[in-house]
Every structure is written in C-alpha cells, then in structure tokens.
C-alpha cells in the first residue's frame, strides 16, 4: 500500500523536499520529474528518511544535462508507468 510521490519543482526554489520528509512512509517511492530532477545532484535528497526509493525520470534528466546521481536511480517513461501501477496511490507535489 505504498505511495509514489511526484516532484516536478526545483528543490532550490521550493520547500517541497522538507515538507515531503514528513509526508513519506517506509517503502514509498519518490520520482523526480521535470524541474524536480535538479534535486538528483547535490545533497538535498539526504533530507528524506531512509527506506524510501528515489528515482529520476531519464528523459527529463537528459534534456536538462543532469547526467548522474549518487542518490537516485534513473527510470524511463515505462518505468514511470510501472511505478504508478505497483504503488497504491500517487501524490503530486508542486
């Protein structure tokens, strides 16, 4: 009964990741999309508790020149679909 959290805003212009830290449960997934992928590099994702799977949408990373991340794994559009299917609900943060 886990949740997929979709982040589409740059974490540097919003407070979303701090708010998200209180909103996630063990086993949840966080997917960075659109400007959210800028969180893939840097240390902001460390604010999230352990036990959360972190993903970044590959095509949005590629278009923005975000090439790699220590904290999140790349997923393509098919993977995005799969994440929405295997989790119980999706919450969009914007």
């Amino acid at each position: 009964m886990s949740t997929l959290h979709l982040i589409n805003r740059s974490p540097f212009s919003t407070n979303i990741l701090q708010e998200l830290a209180d909103a996630v449960s063990q086993g949840d997934h966080v997917l960075l999309v659109e400007d959210g992928v800028y969180a893939a590099s840097g240390t902001l994702l460390h604010a999230l508790p352990k036990g959360i799977e972190l993903w970044a949408l590959e095509e949005d990373c590629m278009s923005r020149g975000v090439t790699s991340s220590d904290t999140s794994k790349m997923v393509d559009m098919a993977g995005f679909v799969a994440l929405t299917a295997t989790t119980h609900r999706t919450v969009s943060w914007f």
Binding site: N8, V33, E59, V81
Partner: peptide
C-alpha cells in the same frame, strides 16, 4: 509549462504495459 507534455508522454506509454 511541461505538464501537458508530461501527461501526454505518460498516457502514450500506458498501452505497452496493458493499461
């Protein structure tokens, strides 16, 4: 904004997984 584009890309990817 990218939202329409993202929604279309997502929707177009659904049938490949039977959705």
């Amino acid at each position: 904004q990218q939202a329409s584009h993202s929604a279309l890309r997502f929707a177009e990817a659904l049938p490949a997984q039977g959705h």
